[in-house]
């Protein structure tokens, strides 16, 4: 039995669909445990990605890791789960280690692959500069899957949704307020990311970067100094000390490609670098490089994309 934890408080994210798909690929029956207020119809659609049933506890709001842990552990025990799957996102990082202790089950943190035939599973180590093969020594294993490591796949039809409550206890964490900009694509989930660095000279020059992101339906990101001096919001900072991302496409404009920056983006499938300096280290990590001035290249790229999109229709 595979148990997959999904946080459905704000609907179903792409990473939720990835974890259910991952559970299905482990070739066993998949039960999803979730909390929050998602509609029964929405939850039953997880059957299309491989879930055979969904259990929801609406009394748990998904804000307290301790409470979610009790819910997951009691469900894992009642269904006899041998594997519990999480997304290695903000909630997964808080809950999976707790469940590991509660079930005395080894945690493969930040998995990037399905287990090999010998049961070892790949994870990124040293900020993506190498990969480790991890083995679990306990009878139950816990896997938290790095977002964007596999694609969601439809393989079935809608499944049953069951309500539960009373296994999670009280929350110790009290939420005072939540600030969330509307309509932005969360960076860790974005498939396309446009990022810029100090080469842009000032915050007033980000218009063309935002236009490029809008044209592509991409999220925006930045290098650390740019967030530190306040040109861009902190949550856009990618790299070793910021967010680690692995989108399909990462476009880096005016970023030198310091090793600490690369550590957060080197999992990207395709990297495009725009830089005036042909010696910038980022070109060594790039798939496509443009040596040129961002202030000329980016507007030109935006026009080219508009032309491309018009031709697609």
């Amino acid at each position: 039995m595979i148990l997959v934890y999904v946080n459905s408080t704000n609907g179903l994210s792409k990473s939720a669909l990835e974890t259910v798909t991952y559970g299905k690929k482990l070739n066993d029956s998949v039960t999803v445990i979730t909390n929050g207020g998602a509609s029964t119809d929405l939850l039953s659609s997880l059957g299309e990605y491989g879930a055979s049933s969904v259990i929801i506890d609406r009394s748990v709001d998904g804000e307290d890791a301790q409470q979610i842990t009790r819910l997951i552990a009691s469900t894992a025990q009642s269904i006899g789960a041998n594997t519990v799957v999480f997304s290695h996102d903000l909630i997964g990082k808080a809950v999976a280690p707790r469940v590991s202790v509660r079930l005395k089950a080894g945690l493969i943190s930040g998995a990037i692959s399905l287990p090999n035939s010998d049961g070892t599973t790949k994870v990124n180590v040293f900020s993506g500069k190498a990969m480790g093969n991890v083995k679990v020594n306990s009878s139950i294993r816990i896997i938290s899957l790095l977002p964007n490591s596999i694609q969601p796949e439809k393989s079935g039809t809608a499944c049953t949704v069951e309500e539960t409550s009373g296994n999670a206890g009280n929350a110790a964490i009290k939420v005072i307020s939540t600030k969330k900009p509307e309509g932005e694509i969360p960076l860790p989930e974005a498939e396309l990311v446009v990022s810029a660095g100090r080469g842009l000279k000032g915050p007033e020059n980000w218009g063309m970067i935002e236009e490029l992101a809008n044209l592509l339906g991409a999220a925006t990101a930045c290098s650390r100094p740019v967030a530190d001096i306040g040109w861009r919001p902190h949550h856009e900072h990618v790299g070793q000390t910021g967010v680690a991302i692995r989108p399909n496409l990462y476009i880096a404009v005016g970023i030198s490609g310091a090793i600490q920056h690369l550590a957060g983006v080197n999992g990207s499938k395709v990297i495009v670098v725009v830089n005036t300096d042909s010696e910038a280290p980022f070109f060594k990590a790039a798939d496509y490089g443009v040596v040129g001035d961002a202030f000329e290249v980016v507007p030109r790229l935006n026009e080219a994309i508009k032309k491309f999109k018009a031709a697609q229709h």
Binding site: N10, L90, I173, K174, V175, S177, T178, K179, H235
Partner: peptide, 11 residues
């Protein structure tokens, strides 16, 4: 930090 934003909590 929460997905796409920040939250104030007490404990």
């Amino acid at each position: 930090e929460i997905v796409g934003g920040v939250q104030v909590v007490e404990v």
